[in-house]
Design a protein around this nucleic acid. Structure first.
Lengths: 97, 97
DNA sequence: GGCATACTTCGATCAATATCGAAATGAACG
DNA sequence: CGTTCATTTCGATATTGATCGAAGTATGCC
C-alpha cells in the first residue's frame, strides 16, 4: 500500500511535463520512459519527473528487458481520490479522455 | 475573464497552507485574510499565498473597510475545469464538503 | 567478452518559492 | 490629526526544484 498524500499528488500534476506524461499514460498502456523523449527535455530530466510521479504514487514502473515500463496507478488513485484524476485529465484534454 | 491555466491551478492547490485556505473558503462565505492566522505562518506569508491563489484564478478579493474579503471563484473554476475543485475538496475533507 | 541500448545517479547550476521581519499603505476611530 | 488595525510590499535567506552533461548500471545482442 503506497502512501498517497493529496498535496504531493497535486504538486506532481502541477508541472507541464509531468502532466504530459500522465496524459500519455492515461489510456492504461504501459510505456517506456523513452516514449516521452519528444517532450523537449533530456533523458535525465524525464527520469527525474518519473521519480516524482512514482513518489507521489501516480505511476509504477517495472523492468522489462532493458526498458522500464510505466503504468498509471489508476485504480489506486481513484480509490484514494475519487474523480480527481478523471477531472484533471478531462480538464487537460477535453473530450479526449 | 481571468486566464486560468490548469498546471498553475494544480500547483496552487499543491501546497498545504493554500489547500487549507481553499478549504476554509469552500462554504462560499467571504473571509478576511486574518481568518487564516491559525495556519502557523505569519501575515506576510498568508498574504503571499493569497496572491498565488488570486493569480491562479482560484480566489478573488475585494476591499471592505480595512479588511480584504476573499471568496472562492467556484463558478468560474467549475466552468473551466468541471468537477476538479469538488474532487479535490472531497479528497481533502471526505464527507465534509 | 565487448558493445549498444535504456535508464538512473551524481554533481552542478540557475530559477522559483516559502518564509520572515521591517517598513509602507490605507481605512477607521477617537 | 494621530493611532490602531488589516494587509501588502520590500529585502533577505534558505530550501526546493528543473535542467543538463557526464558517469554509472543493467540488460540484450553479436
Amino acid at each position: 500500500m503506497i502512501e498517497m498524500e493529496l498535496t504531493t499528488l497535486l504538486q506532481a500534476l502541477g508541472d507541464p511535463i509531468r502532466l504530459q506524461i500522465v496524459g500519455g499514460l492515461a489510456d492504461g498502456e504501459p510505456r517506456a520512459c523513452g516514449s516521452f523523449a519528444h517532450l523537449g527535455v533530456g533523458a535525465p530530466t524525464i527520469s527525474h519527473h518519473f521519480k516524482v510521479l512514482r513518489e507521489a504514487g501516480l505511476v509504477e514502473t517495472h523492468v522489462q528487458g532493458r526498458e522500464r515500463l510505466n503504468t498509471l496507478r489508476r485504480e489506486a488513485i481513484d480509490a484514494d481520490f475519487p474523480g480527481l484524476l478523471d477531472s484533471v485529465l478531462e480538464a487537460a484534454w477535453p473530450m479526449k479522455v
